[in-house]
Amino acid sequence: MVKKALQLEPVCCGVCSGDQWREYAKGKDYEYNTSDDVFQIVECQLCGNLYLNPRPTKSELSTIYPPNYYAYNYNVAINPIAIRAKDWLDKVKVKQWLQHLSTPTPRFLDVGCGNGRYLKILHQLGVPRDYLYGVEMSDRQIEQLKADGFHGYYGRIEDVEDQLPAASFDLIVLLQVLEHVENPRQMMTSLAKLLAPGGILIVETPNTKSWDVKLFRRGYWGGYHIPRHWNLLSAATLKRLANEQGLDIKTFNFLPAHSFWIFSFHHWISDRWKNKTLANWFNPYQNLILLTIFTGFDLVRARLGFSTSNIQMVALKPYPPTEQE
């Protein structure tokens, strides 16, 4: 069945607002097949940001994020063993976050909190529910968070910023969200305003400077997540966004990106070989063998000092000079 063409709109760079670009890659929605459109990813000639241009209008969001989108069906889409492993890894991750802080009971904000699993982990570690906030684009998830005693806000962070306590959060996390938004610079402005002096911002997002990007760059790289990833960043563009808001970079870390590796092969096989059965075997949510192989591969590469295609930025909001005296 031929699908309708999506409504698209031309856009400027989400990092520097420039409109000078060159074509970088082209590809289709190989994951969910929501349209037959071929999408263009361009590289900003002023700052190096990669972005989808033109991209779907907001009216198409319900199309490009279909009901079977994995984030809406987390417990069904992902292998139960992988879920248990992720739960354990998430607890390790949260404890690592706390090492950046001077308080074991931070006021915490998770932007794009999903089902609130990080809020729940922090509560298990002793942080009171009244200190834990989540923002999500799902009414159902937010209502459940509120019922569980957490602070929940429905909408984009730019839209709910005024409802949150300004300059009060010790820790804000933005995990695999920045690449989905239309204006990363505006989002970073909102987050910086919400951070308390001495507060920590942790951002995880796809990294465009890695081996798998080079191998599959022309259109098959899994990190493109066409047409849902609208801006794709690097350490340089992340640093620019943070520094513009007066944030100091503490560290960049590189994390495993098994799903990008696996989806890259899926897309290549699906499009070039037209072998749906083999392509479906490359499923990062269900294939434990491939998940283990590529997770281990990226862990070793990161340990040896190589970049992976999943980058973590840890940034600090410094105290004003008057507060340091």
Rank of each mutant, 00 (worst) to 15 (best):
V2K: 15
K3V: 07
L6N: 06
P10L: 06
C13K: 07
G18I: 01
D19N: 15
W21V: 06
R22S: 10
R22T: 13
Y30D: 04
Y30G: 00
E31M: 06
Y32R: 00
T34G: 10
S35Q: 12
D37P: 10
V38P: 07
E43K: 06
C44I: 02
L46N: 15
G48N: 01
N49D: 13
L50F: 08
L50R: 12
P56L: 02
T57L: 10
T57C: 13
S59K: 12
E60P: 04
L61M: 09
T63R: 15
T63S: 15
I64C: 09
N68L: 15
A77R: 11
I78W: 11
N79C: 09
P80H: 08
I83Q: 14
R84W: 08
W88Q: 07
W88R: 08
D90K: 03
K91V: 11
V92D: 14
K93R: 15
V94C: 02
L98K: 03
H100F: 11
L101C: 03
T103W: 10
P104L: 12
L109W: 01
V111D: 13
G114Y: 03
L125A: 07
L125C: 04
L125W: 02
L132F: 06
D139I: 09
Q144A: 12
L145D: 02
A147F: 08
F150L: 11
Y153A: 02
Y153L: 07
E158N: 08
E158Q: 15
V160F: 12
Q163W: 06
Q163S: 13
A167G: 05
A167M: 08
D170Y: 02
D170N: 02
D170H: 10
L171A: 01
L171D: 01
V173D: 12
L175G: 10
L175E: 11
E179N: 09
V181M: 14
P184G: 04
P184F: 08
M187W: 13
M188Y: 11
S190C: 07
L195I: 05
G199W: 02
I202S: 07
E204D: 12
E204P: 03
S210Y: 09
W211F: 13
D212V: 03
V213S: 03
V213R: 10
L215Y: 02
G223H: 00
Y224M: 07
H225V: 08
R228G: 09
L232G: 01
L233R: 05
L233V: 11
L233Y: 04
S234T: 04
A235W: 02
K239V: 00
K239Y: 04
K239H: 05
E244C: 11
L247N: 09
K250M: 13
F252L: 11
P256F: 05
P256D: 10
A257T: 02
H258C: 08
S259N: 12
S259E: 14
F260V: 04
W261D: 05
I262L: 03
H266T: 00
H266F: 11
W268H: 01
W268F: 07
N275Y: 09
P284L: 08
Q286E: 12
N287E: 00
F294A: 12
T295G: 04
T295E: 14
V300C: 05
A302Y: 05
S307P: 01
S307F: 06
I311L: 13
M313H: 07
A315I: 08
P321E: 13
